[in-house]
Amino acid sequence: QTVHVKGVQYHFPNPEEAVKFALKVAKDLGGRVEFHGDEIHVE
């Protein structure tokens, strides 16, 4: 599972961890989380 944050990719073997990370980052940055297939983008 890959999380993209402002052009940087973070790889997580566990999808659940990836989602938790993405939600935390989005909250910290005041952004939103978008799901694109296997990828999660924080915009």
Results as ranks from 00 to 15, higher is better:
residue 17 E to T: 08
residue 28 D to K: 12
residue 23 L to P: 03
residue 12 F to K: 00
residue 22 A to K: 00
residue 39 E to A: 11
residue 32 R to P: 02
residue 24 K to G: 08
residue 12 F to P: 01
residue 33 V to A: 04
residue 26 A to Q: 03
residue 36 H to S: 07
residue 21 F to P: 04
residue 10 Y to S: 02
residue 15 P to T: 14
residue 15 P to D: 07
residue 13 P to G: 10
residue 37 G to E: 07
residue 31 G to K: 03
residue 39 E to R: 07
residue 29 L to I: 13
residue 35 F to H: 05
residue 12 F to N: 00
residue 2 T to C: 09
residue 28 D to N: 09
residue 18 A to S: 02
residue 42 V to Q: 00
residue 11 H to W: 15
residue 26 A to W: 03
residue 3 V to F: 00
residue 31 G to H: 04
residue 41 H to G: 02
residue 32 R to V: 11
residue 27 K to C: 14
residue 16 E to H: 09
residue 29 L to F: 09
residue 20 K to Y: 07
residue 12 F to V: 01
residue 10 Y to F: 10
residue 23 L to Q: 14
residue 15 P to S: 13
residue 4 H to E: 05
residue 42 V to Y: 02
residue 20 K to M: 09
residue 35 F to Q: 05
residue 19 V to L: 15
residue 16 E to I: 10
residue 34 E to H: 14
residue 36 H to M: 09
residue 16 E to C: 13
residue 12 F to D: 01
residue 24 K to Y: 05
residue 2 T to P: 02
residue 43 E to H: 14
residue 10 Y to C: 08
residue 26 A to F: 02
residue 25 V to F: 05
residue 17 E to W: 06
residue 20 K to Q: 11
residue 25 V to N: 03
residue 20 K to N: 08
residue 24 K to H: 09
residue 24 K to A: 13
residue 32 R to K: 10
residue 32 R to Q: 08
residue 36 H to D: 07
residue 6 K to E: 12
residue 36 H to P: 02
residue 13 P to H: 10
residue 43 E to Y: 15
residue 14 N to H: 05
residue 35 F to P: 02
residue 24 K to V: 07
residue 19 V to N: 06
residue 10 Y to E: 01
residue 37 G to I: 06
residue 7 G to W: 04
residue 2 T to Y: 07
residue 34 E to T: 13
residue 16 E to N: 07
residue 42 V to D: 01
residue 12 F to W: 03
residue 24 K to W: 07
residue 27 K to A: 12
residue 17 E to V: 06
residue 6 K to T: 06
residue 8 V to E: 08
residue 27 K to V: 08
residue 10 Y to M: 04
residue 27 K to Y: 10
residue 9 Q to Y: 12
residue 6 K to C: 15
residue 38 D to V: 10
residue 18 A to P: 00
residue 9 Q to W: 11
residue 3 V to L: 02
residue 39 E to C: 13
residue 8 V to Q: 10
residue 12 F to Y: 02
residue 5 V to N: 02
residue 28 D to E: 14
residue 36 H to I: 13
residue 41 H to A: 04
residue 6 K to S: 12
residue 42 V to T: 01
residue 20 K to F: 07
residue 3 V to I: 03
residue 42 V to A: 02
residue 19 V to Y: 15
residue 14 N to S: 13
residue 39 E to H: 15
residue 43 E to S: 11
residue 11 H to K: 08
residue 30 G to A: 06
residue 28 D to S: 12
residue 36 H to V: 12
residue 43 E to G: 09
residue 16 E to V: 09
residue 22 A to R: 00
residue 29 L to M: 12
residue 30 G to F: 06
residue 41 H to S: 06
residue 11 H to C: 13
residue 14 N to C: 11
residue 7 G to R: 04
residue 26 A to E: 01
residue 7 G to C: 10
residue 26 A to S: 04
residue 30 G to I: 04
residue 23 L to R: 10
residue 15 P to A: 13
residue 4 H to P: 00
residue 14 N to G: 06
residue 3 V to G: 00
residue 6 K to V: 06
residue 37 G to F: 07
residue 36 H to W: 12
residue 37 G to W: 06
residue 31 G to V: 08
residue 41 H to F: 14
residue 35 F to V: 09
residue 35 F to E: 03
residue 22 A to T: 00
residue 41 H to E: 03
residue 35 F to D: 03
residue 30 G to M: 07
residue 17 E to H: 05
residue 17 E to M: 10
residue 33 V to C: 09
residue 34 E to M: 13
residue 31 G to F: 11
residue 28 D to Y: 12
residue 26 A to G: 03
residue 13 P to E: 13
residue 23 L to I: 13
residue 43 E to A: 11
residue 26 A to R: 01
residue 9 Q to D: 09
residue 18 A to K: 01
residue 5 V to A: 04
residue 39 E to Q: 12
residue 40 I to M: 05
residue 12 F to S: 00
residue 4 H to T: 12
residue 12 F to C: 09
residue 10 Y to Q: 02
residue 28 D to T: 11
residue 38 D to Y: 10
residue 33 V to Y: 03
residue 16 E to D: 10
residue 18 A to M: 01
residue 19 V to E: 08
residue 36 H to A: 06
residue 12 F to H: 02
residue 34 E to Y: 15
residue 41 H to L: 08
residue 41 H to V: 10
residue 28 D to F: 12
residue 28 D to H: 12
residue 27 K to Q: 12
residue 14 N to E: 06
residue 41 H to Q: 04
residue 19 V to D: 03
residue 24 K to Q: 14
residue 21 F to Y: 07
residue 14 N to R: 05
residue 7 G to N: 06
residue 6 K to Q: 12
residue 25 V to K: 06
residue 17 E to S: 08
residue 33 V to H: 02
residue 29 L to W: 08
residue 9 Q to R: 12
residue 15 P to E: 11
residue 13 P to I: 12
residue 40 I to W: 06
residue 21 F to N: 03
residue 22 A to F: 02
residue 23 L to C: 14
residue 6 K to L: 14
residue 18 A to H: 00
residue 1 Q to R: 15
